[in-house]
Amino acid sequence: MLAFHSDAHSLALPPGHRFPQSKYRLLREHFEREPGLLRMQPAPAATEGELALVHTPDYIDAVLHGHLSAAAQREIGFPWSPSMAERSRRSVGASIAAARAALAEGVAANMAGGTHHAYADKGSGYCVFNDVAVAARLMQAEWSRSRRELLQVLVIDLDVHQGNGTAAIFRDDGTVFTFSMHGARNFPFRKEPSDLDVELPDGCADAAYLGALEVALDEVWRRCRPGLAFYLAGADPHEGDRLGRLKLSNGGMVERDRRVLDALRERRIPVALSMAGGYGHDLATTVAVQVNTLTLAAASWAAWQAAAATAVSERGTG
């Protein structure tokens, strides 16, 4: 399975900063030690034109050329630096590349991304540009040019924090269905309405979570017929997360990912994953959760390839 990484571009964070940027390097290094599952590639940088499919020109200029105000940097949570701007462009580029690969092969991944708190005109909550929103808009444009038909997009956001920026960007847009399942009392404290929001109480554990997910997915399939999905597979619902406030076990997280990936594959809906949040007390725990997610995604990719090979064989003998 193709997976795109952008951890070469680091953030200039002060000591003690809560953002665990090293997890992206650790995730890549894990799969370098165990080759075979992922075809890892460095992420390309999104162009200004691609960013402009979602973000306002003034905001793009401020990020890329260092004009963000002190207040804007505080809301994002990162100090500006050239590397911060480049990292943000490549995080978007990774989701663009993963979406193209998913449309070709069934499943692909951004080994970071999921920056769902970014709005069209501002960043927030460790999110600078909204990678999924930009990738969705670009895939729709490319699909329309090549197929002369509309690409319906589904966003499945299972980060523990509501995808407020994504919901705002696609508000009243019938071509993109946004589904977010998140902690009711967690950040952001002012939620934006998604097409489908499921709010969970603090301490929600495996059985209640998976039951809510099943009901929500049934509603998604009733209301949406997508040609492409983006799955924000946040690790922060895990019981070991510092910021999550939910109580999913390792097994619960694996079952969450399996149910989402199986449901998409059964419906032949290509999916681009992003890792989204994860802030474990023990960073190794967060990395292990995301290793499991990518391992399951690679297995789903392999099943897509097997099904495609079978279909070609049947056509050849029919």
Rank of each mutant, 00 (worst) to 15 (best):
S69G: 06
L154K: 03
G113N: 05
P270R: 07
D218L: 11
D202A: 10
S249Y: 12
Q290G: 04
D218W: 07
D206M: 13
G93L: 03
V312A: 09
A46N: 01
D159Q: 08
D241S: 12
A233V: 01
G203F: 06
A311N: 08
G114S: 05
R315Y: 12
V271R: 07
Y279H: 14
M40Q: 12
G183S: 08
S180R: 06
D262E: 13
E34F: 09
D157E: 01
P35S: 07
E266M: 08
E48Q: 15
F129L: 00
S124E: 05
Q290D: 04
A104K: 15
F19P: 14
M84F: 00
L11E: 11
L38T: 02
S313C: 10
L13D: 11
A109L: 06
L210F: 15
E214T: 12
A303H: 01
G183V: 09
A272N: 07
S88I: 00
P270I: 09
G165I: 05
G244A: 13
R89E: 01
F78T: 06
P14G: 14
G174W: 14
D7R: 14
R268W: 13
S95N: 09
L294P: 05
G106P: 04
A141I: 05
A216I: 11
N186Y: 15
L26C: 11
D159W: 06
S22Q: 14
